[in-house]
Nucleic acid binder design. Structure first.
Length: 403
DNA sequence: AGTCCACAGGAAGGGCAGGCGA
DNA sequence: TCGCCTGCCCTTCCTGTGGACT
């Protein structure tokens, strides 16, 4: 057994890889050239340029769907800005935080604590009053003249979770500082995000905004071509494969991230099969694999109660005898039976309703509040994942819960 | 027009774990 | 050790709601 593993690893090392730089297809890669985003890059640069004169740039809000290049663009502009600032000895600091990262920046306390940590202050994960954390941050920031650009990615998720008070507090930070100046750069997938804010918060923002439109299939093709040149050995990716990737991603609101993921996973599948080129069927397989992997990754680490609710949702169709719409009541009944089977104490319907909403936010299901007249108002639940993924998930949950 | 259903979802608060400072 | 603070998970209580039915 051990010997064959050794052989496998040796074979792997001796094999010629079809990748040259796989990182070029991942989210962490910041390309020097970002196709079809010149206008947005210039706008960002114009808005942030005053920082080079030690003037506080306007707060900036960037809107656009997933994979429209928001993050990569702002990171690119900021890194160029930092280069110039370094050359000219200008005190400029850029802090990037993703508000969706659980346990990092998903509450007001954690966000400010993380900002303070970025400024080199050690803040405990819990235990201090929030005011105190703000004070620690002020002290860390305000010891010299400095421009700080705070990029808050997926800010809509933070506001959804904690309310918009935090945004008001953030914009007021400048009035507490004497030397340093702070600008907030918010990135949101939700274009209606701003309209849901309290008017008081909206006026305190006083911001500029840039909207990133989705890429079309031709633009996605360009992006894939430029990245595949960096990522793969010459000749591995055919034009047909790129066109197919682009078409797949264009189908989903022009998501470049999805297109790059497809190409990367298809490459990995081809390499595993010892193919020297990526075939079109690898794209189909990659599409399936990405969906399953993403959902499995999402549910990893979820508590047993959430998994039981998800299992109830996954098995709705089997138990829906009248074959009517699947709704909250049905899920709750299934869930209670599952709890009995698994020896768990069941939660209240109120709480289960929140857990169902969480799965909706994760994108595993889609829910819609409907009224059935005198038969009540409820939430219609529809699965967003393929049958194969659903079956795989069910198996994982069964093993986890011993049911 | 009024009733009624089956919830949705907001608000308040309890209980717990965990960190910090006195 | 104790009191105080936090986040998190959860319950309880409550009001609101769209449309079929009477």
């Amino acid at each position: 057994m051990q010997l064959s593993l050794q052989k496998l690893f040796e074979n792997y090392l001796n094999k010629k890889s079809i990748f040259v730089n796989k990182d070029a297809l991942t989210i962490k890669y910041t390309p020097y050239d970002i196709p079809h985003r010149d206008e947005q890059i210039n706008l960002c640069a114009q808005i942030l340029a005053p920082s080079l004169r030690m003037e506080r740039p306007s707060n900036l809000f960037i809107y656009g769907k997933t994979g429209t290049g928001k993050t990569v663009t702002i990171k690119h502009v900021c890194s160029e800005l930092e280069k110039v600032a370094n050359d000219k000895n200008i005190s400029l600091k850029v802090i990037y935080l993703n508000c969706k990262m659980r346990k990092v920046a998903d509450t007001e306390y954690r966000l400010i604590a993380q900002l303070a940590r970025e400024m080199g202050v050690d803040v405990p994960a819990t235990g201090l009053p929030t005011d105190e954390v703000y004070n620690l941050f002020y002290k860390a920031v305000d010891d010299k003249e400095l421009i700080i650009l705070i990029i808050l990615d997926e800010i809509d998720q933070l506001i959804k979770k904690t309310g918009d008070e935090i945004l008001y507090n953030l914009t007021r930070i400048n009035s507490e500082l004497t030397k340093a100046k702070i600008s907030i750069i918010g990135i949101s997938n939700d274009i209606t995000f701003k309209s849901n804010l309290d008017p008081r918060v909206r006026s305190s923002l006083n911001e500029e905004e840039i909207i990133f439109p989705p890429y079309d299939a031709l633009q996605l093709k360009d992006i894939l071509e430029s990245r595949s040149k960096i990522a793969f050995v010459n000749g591995v990716v055919s034009e047909a494969v790129i066109a197919k990737c682009a078409a797949f991603a264009a189908r989903e609101h022009g998501d470049a991230r999805k297109a790059l993921d497809l190409l990367r996973v298809a490459g990995e599948l081809a390499e595993r099969e010892n193919c020297e080129t990526i075939l079109e069927r690898h794209i189909d397989e990659a599409d399936e694999k990405i969906e399953t992997d993403q959902v499995v990754e999402l549910i990893k680490g979820l508590p047993k109660q959430s998994l039981t609710v998800l299992y109830a949702i996954l098995s709705m169709d089997k138990f829906n005898e009248e074959n009517s719409e699947n709704h909250t009541g049905l899920v709750y009944n299934l869930y209670k039976n599952l709890c009995l089977k698994a020896g768990l104490k069941n939660l209240t319907q109120r709480r289960v309703s929140d857990l169902i909403n969480e799965f909706d936010m994760m994108g595993i299901i889609t829910t819609k509040v409907i009224s059935k007249g005198r038969y009540g108002r409820t939430k219609e639940i529809e699965l967003n994942i393929s049958k194969e993924t659903s079956e795989k998930l069910s198996k994982i949950i069964e093993e986890n819960l011993n049911i």
